[in-house]
Design a binder for these strands. Structure first.
Lengths: 342, 342
DNA sequence: AAAATTACCGAAAACGCTTCCGAAAAATTC
DNA sequence: GAATTTTTCGGAAGCGTTTTCGGTAATTTT
């Protein structure tokens, strides 16, 4: 099963290779019948164009680089899948690289992809801002690039972000409305834009409902369950357990819940919980975890569209897209919910 | 910031492009000093070879296709990450596609990748065997291909698989030794090789310990939490709840546990559980879930190595690698474990 | 019916690299 | 010091496409 080339088809039909090429790229200067003939015999022969030759001559690889901080959690997995579906449907391939939540790795990934001549990049940055000046210079050069998530809206690049502030506010307000008086926020890293924004939302809700500073706390944790557990250990040690926790993500919430349960606390009777960036297990754990769901598919699609626009037409203006999600209330944050037999 | 070519370097140094090329591919017929000079100026200029041109002339893309059934669950995510790390270190890029647990999608993915001229393929098949004859014909043609997981060891292709039978046997035997008398196996799909093998392991343990057929059951479920829940609903309806469950994976176990708890059962006091293909949340849920851990990184690396061997030397013989894992016993399957305050 | 357009197609260059072939220069042998 | 071998390099073809340019044949215009 050898690979046929454009020349094989040309020879078979006694036409020139230009004609065959014209048939595939539906150019105007080819007769309709010959075009159809070429296409048909090509199909019969099982011909597929050689993408490398095409790339070389078109000076475009039809590859798009995607860099994410990780894809162990469902969130970025879904984003990658959605990006792939969308971009393949538009005739592109994607090269996915993950940075392992490491800035240096991220820079290496981006450079590897650029050296591999991707036509554009979609980057979900990890935390830290060391690379931003480099990225911005690339953007200025006209390199098609879209940022996804975890990036300050103020930075002058095209981006798609979630409205963290708003939904953090909603989630917090829900806890307040349920009657919880003392609410702590486990906040992720403060230098991570999404965490920062969620902190702002949290504070906004506190302010709106006139809750004073001694009745709430913002505790910086990481993004892992382990880190949620550590914080709880510390709080238990200091006898400083609030009525409710609003957590930067579900994993931190699950870690914290685990540690509290291990120490005899009941959730939500003693302590209530709200997570963020909903995962599938939110409804499998006991109690089911309230969480904010982000529109991964939509975010990915928007990012893809923004990028393709840039690729097809350089100097399209910078754009920022801010998306909204849903907040699902489950037992973990409902006061007086009978948790039956746990 | 334009891209330099080999010609730019050649012109600058007053040498021919062949010489420059020789320097990069460390050929024997080039003087050491000129080679170093070329390499140095290339580096200074910020030159990077054009991968498309290279591919075209070498007739190899240095891309490797990876097809997995999904990567929402950690398992395949880890495999993909490990594959990527390994293959990039060897100078390859990977193109990852996921089949969404669908045979037709899988075939499309494989064909897309082949048309994109990947140098080889690593496939973790979804269930169903429709595509196997096609794959086997490709293998016969000499197309470098390695299968990962979910494939019968009897099929004549190179593959890396987990020793499901053995570890399923261990897990089951553990339940028996804990004193559980009536054990049900929630088995995934019977036409999925991994499920089939785990069933065999389960049966083997039953046989060894002389447990009769009316004291165990094998119930076919899917791979999702939802399906674990459905089975439990059914069993509750028929008042047919055993002492313990051995589940095809953690998600099914978690679904089943959830449903049992909702109906007033205590885990593990009333019903014990063992999962499979350990996930991170196994130790975050209450009770912590016993599970068998698969060596994802090692499996991926082995698969990568097998594939590169095939790429570098066609007609290397077919090879099968069977790997082992670890079984971690946690509270969900320990009799008389004080579950404290739950 | 001659002139002007238009439709269609082939030849050839180009994309940036690898590699084969042959030749000049250097080193070795006699 | 001539002959031979080895080292080092340049020229050129080739990888499979796209695209420009020019030309013939067909069609339309006058």
């Amino acid at each position: 099963m050898k690979h046929f080339t454009i020349k094989d088809i040309a020879d078979k039909l006694n036409v020139s290779i230009s004609t065959v090429s014209r048939a595939f790229n539906d150019k105007y200067d080819i007769k309709k019948e010959t075009k159809e003939l070429v296409l048909k015999t090509a199909k019969d022969m099982g011909y597929h164009p050689n993408p490398m030759a095409k790339s070389l001559s078109k000076k475009r690889s039809s590859n798009i680089g995607v860099v994410v901080p990780e894809f162990i959690n469902e969130y970025y997995s879904e984003i990658v899948i959605a990006l792939q579906n969308f971009l393949i449907s538009k005739g592109y391939q994607i090269l996915v690289m993950q940075s392992d939540e490491d800035e240096d790795q991220e820079l290496m990934n981006v450079q590897t992809l650029i050296n591999n001549m991707v036509d554009g990049l979609i980057i979900a940055p990890t935390r830290g801002s060391k690379n931003m000046t480099y990225y911005q210079s690339k953007v200025k050069e006209g390199y098609p690039m879209v940022f996804l998530n975890r990036i300050e809206t103020s930075i002058p690049v095209s981006k798609v972000v979630f409205n963290n502030l708003k939904w953090s506010f909603f989630a917090t307000e829900h806890l307040i409305r349920q009657g919880y008086k003392k609410i702590y926020h486990l906040s992720g890293y403060k230098d991570l834009s999404v965490s920062y924004e969620r902190i702002q939302g949290f504070k906004k809700a506190m302010k709106k409902h006139h809750i004073l500073e001694d009745n709430y706390k913002i505790i910086e944790t990481g993004l892992l369950a382990k880190e949620g557990m550590e914080v709880i250990e510390d709080l238990i040690f200091h006898h400083d357990i609030p009525d409710a926790f609003f957590c930067v993500n579900d994993m931190v919430a699950l870690g914290a819940i685990k540690k509290l349960k291990d120490n005899g606390y009941r959730v939500p009777e003693d302590v209530a919980f709200v997570g963020f960036t909903e995962t599938r297990i939110a409804e499998l754990v006991t109690p089911q975890l309230s969480s904010v769901k982000q529109p991964t598919y939509e975010m990915a699609k928007k990012a893809g569209e923004l990028l393709l626009k840039q690729i097809e037409n350089k100097n399209t203006p910078i754009e920022t897209i801010v998306l909204n999600g849903e907040f699902t209330i489950r037992k973990s944050s409902v006061k007086g919910s009978t948790t039956d037999l746990l």
